[in-house]
């Protein structure tokens, strides 16, 4: 595999402009003015000298019930990198439409503590275009570097529902497993504003999160919580025991329609008398539908 073309962006792109551009791409594709590509663009986008504002970290952590420290929370780093991810996903030659894309999960390796004052270099690219029983999925990879070394590596998996790219095998639907809720260890009460509030701190203004109305336009019965909101809260819940380096992953199941009461179980595991990992599962307190599951592991 040849190396990807490196494209240096002068600064973090504006997410709102990227959404507008995504809308116009969608419109033009629909009208046939634009032919959709069938392969991933062989590029990686990089922004260097990204500076994080302490005020932004503070707002983020206060919203997500985390502790404000001078080091960056893991999911916050995801939100810092998100505009670069979006710049890849909204490229005209990207084979999958951004709008309506479903977030399936994340895998992150948080390699060392990142001080808020460190200038960061964020690189994002897409890989692993693959068939899925419900459409086509893709991994978006992010490397975050500080002082020349990788400090944070993330993979987000997205699904373009109902879109099948020629040449990819359609995966078979996995057998559905009955979910039996375990004993909860915590409970989150999420108000209807949870989506708007997370949008404000993360910049992810996807309309499906903002209001019941905007979500309805996109075919959802009500607005849904950001996957990364759920991830940020659950990782914050484990952070007291986990120290860098650590890895975490989350897999999203049924969406969390707002408002909602999410029950959560976090189970810590020890090895050699020390904390080793934690598994977590979130589900609807009343619906008993699984919303997400995942783990945090010491590296």
């Amino acid at each position: 595999m040849s190396t990807r073309e490196a494209i240096a962006l002068p600064e973090l792109p504006s997410l709102s402009k990227l959404y507008v551009s995504a809308l116009s791409t969608a419109a033009r594709t629909k009208l046939g003015a634009l032919e959709r590509s069938h392969a991933l663009p062989h590029v990686q986008h990089t922004v260097t000298d990204v500076q994080v504002s302490l005020e932004h970290v503070t707002t983020f952590q206060h919203l997500l019930h985390g502790t404000v420290r001078d080091s960056l929370p893991s999911v916050f780093v995801h939100s810092v990198a998100f505009p670069v991810v979006m710049s890849v996903l909204t490229r005209p030659d990207f084979p999958l439409p951004l709008l309506g894309m479903v977030h399936l999960g994340n895998r992150v390796r948080h390699l060392r503590s990142i001080d808020f004052s460190e200038p960061l270099a964020v690189t994002a690219w897409a890989e692993n275009l693959a068939g899925h029983h419900a459409g086509t999925c893709v991994d978006v990879r992010v490397d975050v570097q500080a002082a020349g070394e990788n400090v944070w590596e993330g993979t987000s998996t997205y699904l373009a529902k109902g879109l099948y790219v020629p040449g990819l095998d359609k995966a078979s639907r996995p057998e559905r497993q009955d979910f039996v809720p375990p004993q909860p260890t915590a409970k989150w009460r999420l108000g209807p504003e949870a989506g708007r509030e997370y949008a404000a701190v993360s910049g992810d203004f996807n309309p499906i999160h903002l209001s019941a109305l905007s979500a309805k336009i996109l075919g959802l019965k009500r607005s849904i919580a950001h996957g990364m909101y759920l991830a940020a809260r659950v990782i914050n819940s484990v952070e007291a025991v986990a120290a860098e380096p650590f890895a975490w992953d989350i897999e999203f199941a049924a969406p969390v329609f707002l408002p909602a009461t999410v029950a959560l179980r976090i189970e810590d595991h020890e090895a050699d008398g020390r904390w080793d990992s934690a598994d977590f599962t979130g589900w609807g307190e009343r619906s008993h539908r699984k919303h997400f599951s995942g783990s945090v592991r010491a590296l």
Binding site: H65, Q183, P184, T185, A186, K187, S237
Partner: peptide, 20 residues
Amino acid sequence: TAEPRTGLSMGEHQALTTAA
């Protein structure tokens, strides 16, 4: 009376312990 870190009320916590 919810515990800040769990969002569970004291009664909900005790209910789990009582059951255990």
